[in-house]
Computed example of a mutant assay.
Amino acid sequence: MRTVNRRHTLTRADIDDGVCPLPDELATRLPHPEAVTVVVEHRMHGLDPAGETFTCPLSQEIAWQVSGLVWPPDVHPGTLVIISWQAAKDELHLRTIVLDDPMRVDGVDYFHEYDPRVVTREFDPGRSNRGQVLNVVRRQGRVYEDGSALYPEAGLAAACGLGRGQKGAFLLKNAVDQLLREGYVTRVTGSLNADGYPSYPPVDDEEQAEMLFYAPLVEPAPYPGDFGGDGGGERREHWVKGFVRKLPPGAQATERQQSLHAKAMETAQIDEPLEPGYTFVKKHHRHG
């Protein structure tokens, strides 16, 4: 029987619960479902081999899955795994794929290939007011292949759970203003189709609406032990130096942001040019 390969993108639940879902066509090939030998092939931080072998039961709840795994600590939600059944060895192999260069996505270091869309959906922004707003944009909004997300601002009040009336509106405004100030989101004018599906730039003959556009901050990540390397875990409250961030298609930095960027360049706070389609976010304190 030949080797069967499939790909799976790990979710936060997969990692926390120590499971890996399997497609039907692969799960039904396993000859000993009560005790499957599972080999996790992995390089810690993309460098040192850190593979481990488990004996796992195969079960079917919503879908087939093997359980009893312990995923390595540098595996984060969105990480891609190659699943292969190697019949000659009677083993199920789960292999992560090392990136040529590690990447930091909104403060989380990825050393292995990942799906930006799942990273956006699965990131936990916390339970603060601004975290609840960001959670709605990233989980309920339209997510693009690069991990950016779009959500109609008018729908936030009902979706965020910050309360009704004047107090709820006040809390929501403050949360959105904080996200705008921190550079997590940008306010743009998009459109909604008859089913409420958002688009940006706006589509002809659709109702225009104000949107919040989220774009992940993706930058090179250092290896642990290098300057700036911390092992890649999710970060909470910290200071963020000024940085250049992607804007929605067709949008440009305001004159104020261009001026702030020029000043940061003059004082050697940043050395990255402000190219078309990007804006500058000044140094600020970020709550996660």
Rank of each mutant, 00 (worst) to 15 (best):
E34R: 13
Y184I: 09
P276W: 10
K263T: 15
L247H: 09
D271T: 14
W239V: 09
T96V: 01
G229W: 09
H238V: 03
I97E: 14
D115W: 07
P224H: 06
D115P: 02
N174F: 12
V244R: 08
K173S: 15
A215C: 02
Q65G: 05
L22H: 02
H8M: 13
R43P: 00
R138G: 00
A221L: 03
E182I: 07
W239K: 11
K173G: 15
T3V: 14
F111S: 00
L180Y: 13
N135D: 12
L94W: 00
M265K: 14
V244H: 09
Q252L: 09
T9S: 05
Y214R: 02
V240T: 12
A251R: 13
A13R: 09
F54A: 06
E219L: 11
D204S: 13
P222Q: 05
Y144I: 01
Y184H: 15
Q132P: 00
G183W: 10
G233W: 02
D100L: 00
A251F: 07
D195W: 10
T267K: 15
F280S: 05
W239G: 15
Y214A: 01
G277Y: 07
L156I: 08
A35K: 11
E52C: 06
E275Y: 08
V188Q: 12
G165N: 02
V176G: 10
V218H: 04
D204G: 07
A253L: 07
S128W: 06
L80T: 10
G183R: 05
G277K: 04
R164L: 12
